[in-house]
């Protein structure tokens, strides 16, 4: 029991590395916020554009979605950080991490929103258009408010799963929780920082899960 406490809950080690871990916590928070915002907004925009049914645009959107649903998040991240410089584009590790995760989330979000849009009965479109609303007005005022509600349960799981991928950013040296925990671990030769790191992830994604359950309950009514 004593050994366990010393290896995984070593108060001295934790005290030494807590500031570093907390700075990692802040970075993870920033990553998560950026990924969720960009990913979902981009997915929403793509789905709404797809509703206009312009053939060329649709082809591009579907291609984008199919590519980023299949590529692993880490691959996109690594490509953005290590691969793009060969094309003359250099971006920060943070930006590469956000890009990798947000593009993947956007692809899944677009599919969720699109499924919701196509689930809206045609009669809703007809009623809206018959009162003189343009296609865009019907989409924005009648269809999307209903579609977003349908999409929420579809989205919450995916969003949590992809946003947890912020831990992958440690691979490209973004100073987030895992990165900090790992270096603290190797320097101190003790596993306690990792336990604290795990606790910090719970602190971020626990509320995430709670908020998404609340959203599902509040808005997830299907007509």
């Amino acid at each position: 029991m004593g050994r366990l406490a010393e290896t995984f809950f070593n108060a001295e080690v934790i005290a030494t590395y807590l500031p570093a871990l907390l700075s990692g916590f802040r970075v993870t928070l920033e990553l998560a916020a950026a990924v969720v915002t960009l990913g979902i907004l981009l997915g929403l925009a793509l789905a709404m554009l797809r509703a206009f049914r312009f053939r060329l645009l649709n082809g591009l959107i579907v291609a984008f979605v199919d590519v980023f649903r299949t590529l692993p998040q880490l691959v996109v991240m690594v490509f953005a950080y290590f691969g793009l410089p060969y094309a003359g584009i250099t971006i920060s590790a943070f930006a590469a991490a956000v890009l990798g995760l947000a593009l993947v989330l956007a692809a899944f979000a677009e599919e969720a929103f699109w499924a919701a849009i196509t689930a809206i009965p045609r009669g809703q479109w007809e009623a809206a258009r018959s009162t003189g609303l343009s296609f865009g007005q019907a989409l924005a005022s009648v269809v999307m408010p209903q579609a977003v509600r349908i999409a929420i349960p579809l989205l919450t799981n995916r969003t949590i799963a992809i946003t947890k991928g912020t831990a992958l950013a440690s691979v490209i040296s973004v100073p987030e929780i895992l990165d900090k925990a790992q270096s603290a671990m190797s320097i101190s030769a003790n596993a306690s920082p990792l336990i604290v790191g795990a606790g910090l992830y719970l602190a971020i994604f626990g509320p995430f899960v709670v908020v998404s359950r609340w959203l599902e309950r509040r808005y997830g009514w299907i007509i």
Partner: peptide, 18 residues
């Protein structure tokens, strides 16, 4: 869209916005 302002339509399924 402008022309449709002058024509009102009532549907069998009502089609109210829920």
């Amino acid at each position: 869209n402008r022309a449709r302002k002058d024509i009102g339509m009532v549907f069998q399924a009502f089609n109210l916005y829920p």
